[in-house]
Simulated assay, not measured.
Amino acid sequence: MKKRLGLLAGKGSLPLEFLKSAEAEGYETVTFALEGITDREVEDLSGKVFWIKPFKLGTFLKLLKREKLPQIAILGKVEHRVALSFSGFDLKAITFILSLKDRRPETIIKGIISEIEKAGTSVVDPTPFLSHLLTEPGVMAGKLTFYVQKDVELGMKVAKELASLDVGQTVVVKDGTVVAVEGIEGTDECIKRGASLAGKGFTVCKAARKSQDMRVDVPTLGIDTVKLVASLGGKTIAFESRKTFLLDREQVVKFAEERGINIVSV
């Protein structure tokens, strides 16, 4: 009999990578997908899928209890800004949000983990299923000049502090100056704002929290971000090794080399 494993899936391809690995490891997967957010491809990769309207926490917990899953992972993006609006929330979600000490991403996700574990399911670290997406330190594309290296060092230091304060994970740096830091708007908007202020040749840095719980909001980078940086005239993307999921690795490296973008795992 196959072992059963759940997935609460948000936006992006990270949940798909998890499902592929879980299937290869012989798991029967049950995915709780969010309508209008989760990629429809989860249908092809899951043993069973429940489509839930976003922010219907009560519905999700009822289904979870019914399935009696021993373990579940939480992966994929859900916009943090919705925590301020209550739009589409059911009564359980509203009472849950109001019970939290604050609405920072880590607080919300750890609160959801607590609710899941009260329902009898443990929330697992997904890293064993996604280890192929973690990188070792090193330059993956391009070559860092002395001045770019200095920008990377500054940017990673600031991004680490920013992430540890649970504000954001991304900063934009140019010529030894922090140009933009990520807030509730998200990575893409931070990069766009930084590019508009810095002009061409900027560096984007992304880091994890100092005490990163790998179950919670792990930094993720993929080809879409690299294309965005290239389109805005950016020169370098740096991210934290062993604590960032790098999607589309071959595509990222090939595109970066073609466009003269430096990619460095720090």
Rank of each mutant, 00 (worst) to 15 (best):
P70W: 10
P70D: 12
G76S: 12
G76N: 10
E79Q: 12
R81G: 01
R81M: 10
A83N: 12
S85K: 12
S87A: 13
S87D: 12
F89T: 00
D90I: 03
A93I: 00
I94W: 06
T95P: 00
T95L: 13
F96D: 00
S99I: 05
L100S: 04
L100A: 00
K101F: 04
K101D: 08
K101S: 12
P105Y: 02
I108S: 00
I108N: 00
I109W: 05
I112G: 02
I113F: 05
I116S: 00
I116Q: 00
K118Y: 06
A119K: 07
G120P: 01
T121M: 03
T121F: 09
T121K: 13
V123G: 06
V124S: 11
V124C: 08
V124P: 04
D125I: 10
D125Q: 10
P126V: 00
F129R: 05
L130K: 03
L130C: 09
S131G: 02
H132W: 05
H132A: 13
L134F: 11
L134D: 11
T135D: 07
T135K: 13
E136Y: 10
E136L: 14
E136M: 10
M140R: 15
M140V: 13
K143W: 11
K143V: 08
L144R: 06
L144K: 03
L144M: 15
T145H: 03
F146V: 12
Y147A: 08
D151R: 01
V152K: 00
E153M: 07
E153A: 14
L154Q: 05
L154P: 02
G155A: 05
V158Q: 08
V158W: 07
A159E: 02
A159Y: 06
E161T: 14
E161D: 13
E161V: 13
L162M: 14
A163C: 09
L165S: 13
L165Y: 11
G168C: 03
V171F: 08
V172R: 02
D175A: 15
V178T: 07
V179L: 11
E182A: 09
E182L: 10
G183D: 06
I184W: 09
I184K: 14
E185V: 11
E185S: 14
T187I: 09
T187F: 14
D188A: 14
E189A: 11
K192D: 02
A195D: 02
S196N: 06
A198E: 02
A198I: 02
G199I: 08
G199M: 06
